[in-house]
Structure formats: C-alpha cells, structure tokens
C-alpha cells in the first residue's frame, strides 16, 4: 500500500499570515521533513489570496478553497469542505493553530477522516510510525506525551510557540479549487463583533499588565492598571476570576482556557498564579508580580516581585517609572 506522508496545514484567511500561521507552517515543515512528505496548505475565507501568497513561500503547494459558500466562516460548511479536501488528498497529518475556528473544527475533522485529534500541543514529532504530541494536562500541573493511534493525526498547536519555517528558494504553487460544497444552514453565523479596545491581539503583545480578583472591581482596571500599562507600552489582561466577575471582557482572559501569551514581560497584579493561569504564560520571558501574599504561587515563577497592596504600589510605581525614565 502506498502511504501518504504529506502534512496539510489549515489556514483561516481572517487571521492573516500572523505569528500563529507562521509557527504552524514551521511545525508543518519540520513534521513533513520527518515523515519524508511534502507540506501543503489550504486557505479558506475572504482574503485567501494574500495569505496563500505568504504560505507559498514556505509550503510546497497551496490550495485556495474558492466558493461563495466558503467566503465567511460557517462551522458546518467549513467542516464539510475540509473533510472533503482532506479525504481526497489523504495527508498523514492535518495541523491547525489554536484559534477559535481551529479548536472548534479539529476533532470533527479527525472524526470524519477516521483519525485521532489532540489539541493545544506544544510538541510534535514522529516516533516509529506514530505521531506523538506533547501537551499540558491537569491544568498545567503535568505534561503528557500522547501517541495518536489513528491516521491522519489531526493536531491543533500552540502555534506561536513553534519556530517559523525559513522561506524556500522557489515558492510553492498556488492553485484554486471549487469544492462544490452545499451550504449547511443548520447553524448560521449571524453576527460578529470585535471587543473594543486594543486587547484583541494579546497574543502578539510584548509587555502585558494583568489583573486578578485582588483588583476588587472594574474601576481600578481603568484608573490604575490602564495608565500603568500605557507607561510600559503594555496590553491589559486578566485572570479568569476577574473575567468571571464581569470586570473585564472574556477576551482578556489569560490561561489554560484563555489566551496563551508569549510576552517579554508579564506583570501579574493581585493574581494568585493558579496552575491554570500559569498555563497561559509558560512562554513569557520574564514574570513579575505584585501581591500581598508572600506565599502566593505566582512568586515561584517570578524573576522579581513586591509583597505589598497593589493600591499602594501602582500609583507610586507610575510616578517612579516616570521619574526613572526622565532621569535617564
């Protein structure tokens, strides 16, 4: 039997060829090399041309799924299209990033192809004949390596944690295909909103100021944390507790079930540092914290910290930052 060893990456044009897509392509390239297959990409949605052009610099072939029904994301229709496409090209592995749409569709793609899915992976490799993935489990307290038993392996990755692929000498070929998929209207996307504020690209932020339940209410996020963030050129984020309290929007949540961020500096204010929160900042370069409790677990992950009430620290800190900045 002829074994297919190709790797297919799935790109949603709406996300652009962002750091996630780049990491995804890098992971795909390395896996394809390990398997001895080629790397192919499929791009869906409005704006596919531009993304396909970028993807062609690192992939051997890029396919644009061209059809009016696929211009905008609709879960059932996209799923049918992807299942059809993967069914025809029979890749050994299908890789996706960890955006909403990827997470939503990956297990179902696996199911339709008779494969195995695993998600939020930070490692991906071939061992013998099998694809193995590494991921955090138990809310970040443990790490597991899973061997996917069925083929294809359908894996969604913490894409930003993977090194991008180097561009190749010759660009891959870009082709267009009409898949003749019927629109499936059992569910219909009728409204889409972006959360106001600059928080939508938290994953790309280099500095993050994040607040937890200890902040005590919505106002201090605006009156205390925001001016501090502005001084540091930072984006604002929060723990689940602060989001669940309704103080800040859910898009601000960092952690296992929130954003996975990779900043140079993460300043955690009045956040305990529960493992599920830390799971979202394992790739942060430097973590610092303000907390009244010297035994708060967050300090186990900090390079530096201050044990004080944030209400005393933050106003003074803003002054000191301004002073130090103007002194130098």
């Amino acid at each position: 039997m002829h074994l297919m060893n190709d790797v297919l990456i799935i790109l949603f044009a709406a996300n652009g060829f962002d750091k996630g897509a780049q990491g995804l392509a890098g992971a795909g390239r390395r896996l394809a090399d390990e398997l001895g297959g080629s790397l192919r990409a499929v791009v869906l949605g409005e704006g596919a041309e531009a993304v396909a052009g970028e993807a062609a610099r690192v992939a051997d072939a890029v396919l644009i799924a061209e059809q009016a029904e696929l211009r905008e994301y609709q879960p059932e229709t996209y799923l049918a299209a992807l299942a059809k496409l993967c069914g025809e090209s029979r890749p050994r592995a299908v890789l996706l990033a960890n955006d909403t749409y990827s997470q939503e569709l990956a297990p179902r793609i696996a199911h339709r192809l008779g494969g195995s899915a695993a998600g939020d992976c930070v490692e991906l490799r071939v061992e013998g004949d099998a694809v193995r993935v590494g991921r955090q489990v138990y809310g970040g307290k443990a790490h597991a390596v899973l061997e996917l038993k069925r083929s294809p392996a359908v894996v969604w990755l913490r894409a930003r944690s993977f090194t991008p692929a180097a561009p190749r000498a010759a660009a891959g070929e870009v082709t267009r295909a009409t898949l003749n998929i019927q629109a499936d209207t059992r569910t219909r996307l009728v409204e889409r909103r972006r959360e106001a504020g600059g928080e939508s690209r938290l994953e790309e932020a280099r500095v993050i100021v994040s607040g937890g339940r200890g902040i005590g209410g919505p106002e201090p996020f605006e009156t205390e944390l925001r001016p501090l963030a502005e001084l540091l050129g930072a984006q604002l984020a929060a723990s689940r507790a602060a989001c669940d309290a309704g103080w800040v929007p859910p898009t601000w949540q960092v952690g296992q079930t929130g954003k996975k961020v990779t900043p140079e500096l993460y300043l955690a204010i009045a956040i305990t540092g529960a493992s599920q929160h830390m799971a979202g900042i394992s790739e942060a370069k430097t973590i610092a914290a303000v907390n009244t409790d010297p035994d708060a677990p967050i300090f186990k992950h900090c390079r530096f910290g201050i044990v004080e009430d944030y209400r005393k620290v933050v106003p003074l800190l803003r002054e000191k930052l301004k002073q130090v900045m103007s002194d130098e």
Partner: peptide, 12 residues
Amino acid sequence: QTDTGWEVFEAA
C-alpha cells in the same frame, strides 16, 4: 466567545 470578541449563531 471568540479570540477577538464574540459571534452569534442561529441554530435549528
């Protein structure tokens, strides 16, 4: 909820 905000679906 989505990465950047929210969406509304109508489902039968």
